[in-house]
Design a protein around this nucleic acid. Structure first.
Lengths: 297, 297
DNA sequence: CGCAATGTTGAACTGGGTCAATTCTCGTGG
DNA sequence: CCACGAGAATTGACCCAGTTCAACATTGCG
């Protein structure tokens, strides 16, 4: 059983035992896992993170975790199930901004605001753990490593958003769907939820349309096209990517934004204490590149 | 002369005097201004911020500040001129991700990566000040207020990106252009660069197309339509919004993401020291809202 | 002055949307 | 166990916003 499967099994078990707190193996929370992808953590830091998940609660498919424009009082992590954030538009349509999987932190974008910019809803039954603004600030004060880790996570989210933006702005329906499927494939693979290119995708075609900026009708047509081209099979909520690399290529997928590691330097503790000692900081000089012909090509 | 004009005048003057360092009035840097929108700063914190701008260098229109995929070694602030970040796509087209104005910090998204996700280029002549990764980490360690401020700025960027995403995914050409113009109008107003609805917009129509996900041809047509409807006049690089509110309404502009203040609580120093004293943190319970009919409407 | 970049206008094309009819799926209750 | 009904997916016909291509006008700069 791989570590990520273990983590998920553990998360489930922990949910069962109500009232368990921090006397647990600190390795196994989905959040801790997420941070460990970025940096190493002291026990103390793990405790700080685990405290984020002290109040797990169940939520059912379709539940609204919070509404657009509601007051920002807390954030949450998701330890089971899928969720998404969305905005309702004037013409009655809806844009899904991001799909959340277990281990993700939800709502950090709202940190800087007093009202929510987007609602969040459960796609299927699951477990979320709310935590407060104050908790986040406490992390800022307690640990530079965690702060940098949080910062990195937000940056990464921004990168994903950027990628999605380019998709919606510039690419065809086939490319958009291919990109989305491939991204899900990679994200799910990391948490051990892919088997030979096959995985569960609990989104309706209408929801997919809302993710991709397409009509549900055209999502259907695009799946049909993929089936006829032998790229993707789909049955209800299960999909099989027959040729993941072809999808990646079709959609010009650049995995950097998911995989590229944070430069180790920034989490090297020795280096940090060196810095703390007050060694002066020297910026290297930056020389702008003159573009060949006055204007960028 | 308004404070923001003063700040710009100052920035220019400072650029002239090479070699001046921190023995200056700490109020006047564009960055400090930006932070002051979010929180109050101690003198010490202002110094930390001003150090970001120790190495101003000139850059000319069309200069590439850094290329896509180049190594991430530093970030920079922009104190004069406009810039944009962009991605080149496989089909030869290009997406402009964000337009930067004086006072903005450029490239923070790349914090979590070893290679750049996007290039940055100058739209017109200006001044940028590179600073290093290490400097950012030093800020994390030195000041919770600045850290939270940086975090807030990144969150805000994410909010702008989200807004842009919705625009590109869901709205018509007129809405996209109206939204962009109105956003620029607000951002420029804050730095004192708008006069009675009129401002300079140094982007070519091709660049506008790259921002808006439209062809340059259609940008031209859309401007024509706005002129005929008496909404916007444009002459070369100057535009006049004849009825800004009509544009805001047309594009369903929600200014929250630009204006909404960070809840004061998070920058209240007394409260912070209270927290430092170790008062226990209690999460309020969160109750998911059951949607009316099993599924979200 | 002349050339290159930028902007404008028209004509024809097309990807994806909309609407509507039909089928499929599955949960429910008789 | 089956019949029913509601939501989800499919398919076809038609439409339109925005693209592409091409010709032309304007601007500005060396």
């Amino acid at each position: 059983m791989c570590p990520s499967c273990l983590a998920r099994a553990y998360a489930y078990a922990r949910h069962q035992l109500t009232g368990d707190h921090l006397n647990v193996n600190l390795q196994d929370s989905a959040i801790v896992q997420q941070f460990l992808q970025h940096c190493s953590l002291s026990e103390e830091e793990k405790v700080l993170l685990l405290e984020l998940e002290q109040n797990p609660i169940k939520a059912s498919a379709g539940d609204i975790i919070w509404q657009e424009n509601s007051k920002v009082d807390q954030f949450c992590t998701i330890s089971q199930g899928w969720a998404y954030s969305f905005r309702n538009l004037g013409d009655g349509s809806r844009q899904i901004l991001k799909v959340y999987l277990p281990g993700d932190i939800i709502g950090m974008r709202d940190f800087a605001f007093s009202n929510r910019l987007a609602g969040v809803a459960m796609i299927e039954d699951g477990v979320v753990s709310p935590f407060s603004h104050e908790h986040l600030l406490r992390i800022f004060r307690s640990s530079t490593a965690l702060t940098a880790g949080l910062f990195a996570i937000v940056c990464r989210q921004q990168a994903m958003l950027t990628e999605r933006l380019i998709n919606l702005a510039r690419r065809t329906a086939q490319q958009r769907l291919a990109h989305f499927l491939y991204e899900m494939y990679l994200r799910l693979e990391r948490i051990g939820a892919v088997n030979n290119g096959r995985f569960r995708l609990p989104l309706s075609q209408e929801q997919l349309g809302d993710v991709l900026g397409l009509s549900a009708v055209h999502v259907s047509r695009t799946f049909t096209a993929f089936r006829e081209e032998g790229l993707v099979l789909r049955d209800r909520h299960r999909v099989a990517l027959l040729d993941p690399e072809a999808l990646a290529q079709l959609s010009e997928f650049d995995g950097t934004y998911l995989n590229d590691a944070v430069p180790a330097l920034f989490f090297d503790r020795e280096w940090q204490s060196h810095m703390l000692a007050g060694t002066p900081i020297k910026n290297e000089e930056m020389v702008p590149v003159k573009s060949p012909s006055a204007q960028a090509d």
